[in-house]
Design a protein around this nucleic acid. Structure first.
Lengths: 235, 235
DNA sequence: TATGCACAAATTGTATACACTGCTGCCGTG
DNA sequence: CACGGCAGCAGTGTATACAATTTGTGCATA
């Protein structure tokens, strides 16, 4: 039986331990946790974030909570409305579509650079990840598919050798995570994704930059297309 | 005589009045002012930002200053180093090059969408802006050239009709402003820029999406090339 | 002279108290 | 009954005080 997708879970999962710096300030820990809860869907877009309530939940004062809000605000994960409080950002359907368009282009650039710079070692890792994805698809393992898919894209970021680009793309992926996650359910997306990934890999391995760029862009845009109806229902 | 470029000025200029909301919090005002001072070059990358000092300067307590730092941090204008203070972000030469590569792609996407959606009204505005740019070039008006060039790109963002994309591109332009500004000095860049803009416009007006994308991308990449030596000297 | 440790000063992180704003609900009036 | 104003409240913005950590300085020692 496939694991249930995270948003269905009732208790917030802890954020996957990040850099785990020993001197991590409270504000940063709260930021990471809230960001994770937003991306995973535990915090629904539009809900108000109460400073005192969250402060109590984490057992700290309002100060670090406020700082976490500011950090999240500039990441566009939450919206600050003056004295009217902070809310989980709820982009309009139009904005979500626009975000996907930008993401498609950034992912496309990643693929283009990957086609230029891919190494045999990375090629092997991509193929192995792809095989895992096929496996998850066979088992209808939704969560597994979602995670391995993430790894596949991460590997391409790495092959692109542009840390700044990787970071920006990763951020955008995270911002759209709450929306992408739902589409993973659609059974026909499994097959389509695998097929599209194959074409992207083929282009990258043959060092065909243009093809890598366009196939990856189309891959993300197709995802976007599949989501439009669903996105509209978000509003 | 050409006006001197801003970084040469000794006194920080006030931030150009933005949205100017009546209920603008201290933290937001400080953020805008500091962001402007960083982009204009008055605050040099790498310098430490002292909370108390800035608090005194703005006549407020440390609290709103700290919040402004957090807001700037997520915009990647400022780097927070735990208890070791905040500094104006100083990206490595490698990172600056990477930022330009991403910006080239985003500007390219703007041009692509503009080619698809440009209206006669916007075409007229672009041509008018271009004429102003030619004029500034003749007068060797460096600051004017810089500002009008900004307007030219803004017009393309508008033609692209993707607000999210426009915002992201604008941000990245702002982050690279301190570096781009220096290159404007180079006399040969005037002529090259005018020529490249002409080609971009031609592609956009003829609704040639691919050409619009690639000419704009090349335009930004050429700027990046002209900067590499200079960027290296920043370190 | 160079190195290591200890202590002091400076600076940031957090908590708490107060000020101010926007909202809610009630009441009076038309 | 509908509408407008006023008071009280809830919640954010700011200031200040205190705790924790980093950094710099000086001295002792090899």
């Amino acid at each position: 039986m496939p694991r249930s997708v995270s948003p269905a879970s009732l208790t917030p999962t802890p954020a996957p331990l990040g850099p785990d710096q020993p001197t991590m300030t409270h504000a940063e820990k709260i930021r990471d946790q809230l960001e994770h809860e937003i991306a995973s869907g535990h915090l629904i877009p539009g809900v108000r974030l109460d400073e005192s309530e969250i402060a109590d939940r984490f057992g700290v004062s309002r100060t670090p909570v406020r700082e976490a809000f500011r950090l999240l605000a500039a990441n566009e994960m939450v919206e600050l409305k003056g004295r009217m409080g902070a809310t989980v950002r709820k982009p309009s359907a139009q904005t979500v579509i626009e975000m996907f368009q930008v993401m498609a282009e950034l992912e496309g650039l990643c693929a283009r650079l990957a086609a230029r710079r891919v190494t045999p070692e990375l090629r092997m890792r991509m193929e192995r990840t792809h095989a895992q994805l096929v496996d998850a698809s066979r088992k209808s393992d939704v969560d597994g598919f979602y995670d391995i898919n993430q790894t596949f894209h991460e590997t391409i970021y790495e092959a692109a050798s542009n840390h700044y680009l990787a970071e920006q793309t990763r951020r955008l992926r995270n911002k759209t995570a709450a929306y992408r996650r739902r589409v993973t359910f659609q059974p026909n997306r499994f097959a389509s994704t695998l097929d599209e990934h194959s074409r992207v890999m083929e282009a990258i391995f043959s060092h065909n930059e243009e093809a890598a760029h366009s196939t990856m862009r189309d891959h993300v845009n197709l995802l976007s297309d599949d989501m439009r109806d669903f996105i509209a229902s978000f509003q």
